[in-house]
Design a protein around this nucleic acid. Sequence first.
DNA 1: AGAAACTGTATCGGTATCAGTTACGTATGG
DNA 2: CCATACGTAACTGATACCGATACAGTTTCT
Lengths: 146, 146
Amino acid sequence: MSDSQKFPVAAHALAYLAHKDAMSADRAVASGELAASMPTNPVVVRRVTAMLAKAGLIATRAGAGGGAWLLKNPQEIRLDTVLRAVNGCAHLGAPPPGVKGCPVGERIPDAVRAAITAADAAAAERLSLISVADLLVDPQAAGKAA
Amino acid sequence: MSDSQKFPVAAHALAYLAHKDAMSADRAVASGELAASMPTNPVVVRRVTAMLAKAGLIATRAGAGGGAWLLKNPQEIRLDTVLRAVNGCAHLGAPPPGVKGCPVGERIPDAVRAAITAADAAAAERLSLISVADLLVDPQAAGKAA
DNA sequence: AGAAACTGTATCGGTATCAGTTACGTATGG
DNA sequence: CCATACGTAACTGATACCGATACAGTTTCT
């Protein structure tokens, strides 16, 4: 999998909630409002917020006046957590299975897989340096965060 | 774009060429042989080797006895170069365009884009520590390379 | 109680991408 | 001349995604 917009949508939604100070049920933001700021469809937003809720980053409530709000401070929500919450990864592809019997054909896929895993971990580690709060201060802050 | 197998195929092909000591035209390896070691289709291999040739990593020659061979030593071919040669990237998705007029809705996409770019760069940097030669020594070497 | 707002989820259609295959023109070597 | 092999185009089937509609269940307000 992966040219998914889930991660960008999730990051945007969390930043929006942080900006709106949605830290409790009485300040919940509806999916329609979040969707309007992307812009995208409210259903797309709800598909993502449902995953974020399962990951414990936000809470949601149905019914009039319902919506989503943050369960943690924006400074404490790291983007690698967000990425994992929406099942995203820095997918570079999976190695082909390799061929039995050929000693080199058998081992290369494992080595390639190890390289991909290492790159994936490096991307996640970089994202762990960025918090949702960093997304609000200025467009360059996220890239500079260290 | 991007759950592509291009990067794994490219890495596998280069490692195979290195293993076969294909360092000159007279040791060229045909796409059929490369494909057989993945296994995949020869055309899939040629689509990738054509890109690697354009990037100057290998050379290819048509006709009987033709095929692909390396233009650089396996130790000198870094995996980030390979990834760029096949137009791959650690795709985490692209931010939605954002909404004009809303100050927060306008800036968040830029911040998200900066975060994604940073993660992508981190993945590439990690790959730059791994050479094609590292893929041959042992399956874990690639992950350990530093 | 009834209306209105909102979530979560199922489903469907349209679009895009990819792997694999076949086919063809071109180039190379015997 | 002919077999070999690359590069590329075209087609197919599979897969994934976004967006939209629909609906059941939940919550608030009057």
